[in-house]
Simulated scan of single mutants.
Amino acid sequence: MKHIGIDIGGTSIKGAVIENGAVTARAKRSTDTSRGRDSIKDCIFEVIKSLLPLIGTDAGIGIGSAGDIDPYEGKVLYATDNLPGFTGFEIKKDVESAFNRRSFVVNDAVAAFIGESYFGAAKDCKNAVMLTLGTGLGGAASINGKLLTGSNFHAARIGHIPLHISGRECTCGKIGCAEQYVSATGLMRTASELDCQCFNCNEVFKKAADGDKNCREAVKLFISDFCTVADTVKSIFDPDCIVIGGGLIELKQYWLEDFLNALPESDAKLIRPAVLGNDAGAIGAAYLLENSEIL
């Protein structure tokens, strides 16, 4: 059966029609988070409306959203300022009321991890971790084939592991969290501090590859911090593999080889780039509509 999968991120809402783990159609809307929850909600509904004619009447809507999500209530328990006003948002209730369709809501990194676990890079691993490098740094993990959720749905929040004790203030309110360095936002902040004069991560990586001294230093610091995160993840979870996904993996030609070379060999052999790309979250969210027992 075809279902709709939605991936709610800090800069865009991505949607897809999914059938047996394969994407048959896509839709996307950019978000202006400065306008708050209602603006983001409008974008979510626009994406869903554009895809509804492509699915049957019995199909559902699976949703992966940034933030701490209670998947049983379909509610955002906590979201950072990357999605202002999202804390308390009852996504499941609003979507089902608006479209009269069953829905299922999970954290976006968990959705991407499920997609990669059943259809992508980690499908042969019972013990796996996924790190999603996007606006923030998301994480999800499984042990002996069972997804880790934690008592408050906070498990594997890799992005909020302390990385620099006296470092940058995080949107979660803590200091020095990993996602303030190892993410698209973190890389751009490092680049700005080094006066790289770049408008996006693609430009930072390209200028670094062309020999720009400041951009090369920004990428070097990004890789160094990411190595620390990867080593920490290995020590905590002892995984069969660590899958790297999110928007920055789409630019892997600029940094992945240097990252792997900077890791100890025992760590490097665990790293697997995500194979589903930006579709992973939508695929995983749609899969949960028929397989929610895996949570």
Rank of each mutant, 00 (worst) to 15 (best):
S65P: 01
K252H: 10
V17R: 03
K49I: 01
D240Y: 07
T149Q: 09
G5T: 07
S142N: 08
V95I: 11
R102V: 06
V275C: 09
N200E: 07
V17L: 06
N200L: 03
S292T: 11
V17I: 07
D195A: 15
S166M: 11
G136P: 07
A98F: 04
A22D: 08
I55C: 01
V17P: 05
H160A: 06
A122K: 13
I158E: 05
E290G: 04
A155G: 10
H154S: 09
K2C: 02
L263Q: 15
P264R: 15
T149Y: 11
T171S: 13
L295I: 14
L163R: 08
G64C: 00
R157I: 03
A274N: 04
R35H: 11
T80R: 01
G145N: 11
R37G: 02
I271S: 06
Q253F: 05
H154I: 09
D38H: 14
D38K: 15
S235L: 09
L221W: 05
G67D: 04
D124Q: 12
G85T: 08
E290H: 08
N291H: 15
A121L: 07
G5C: 09
D108R: 14
F259H: 08
C201A: 13
F205N: 01
G88D: 08
G67H: 05
P71F: 00
K207S: 02
V243R: 00
N82M: 04
A156T: 07
F89Y: 10
E169Y: 12
G62T: 01
E19R: 13
G186P: 11
I48F: 03
T185A: 07
A59R: 01
C196S: 12
I63D: 00
T171L: 13
Y181D: 05
D94K: 08
E19F: 10
S235P: 02
T190R: 10
D70E: 02
G173Q: 15
E73Q: 14
E250P: 00
V110W: 09
R272N: 06
T24S: 15
H154A: 07
L54N: 03
R29N: 07
P273L: 06
G281S: 02
C177I: 05
F119P: 11
G136A: 06
I175Q: 12
R102N: 09
A121R: 10
P71S: 00
A59K: 00
S117T: 12
I44R: 10
D210Q: 15
E179P: 03
S30L: 14
K213G: 05
G159M: 05
K92Q: 15
I6S: 00
A121C: 04
N278H: 13
N127S: 05
A112D: 04
A156I: 02
G88P: 09
T80P: 00
N152E: 14
V229Y: 04
C196G: 15
E193V: 04
T87R: 04
Q180P: 00
K269T: 06
A79M: 05
K28P: 00
P71Q: 01
K213A: 13
K49V: 00
L131N: 05
C201S: 13
A22L: 10
F199V: 06
L83M: 00
L270M: 11
I143G: 01
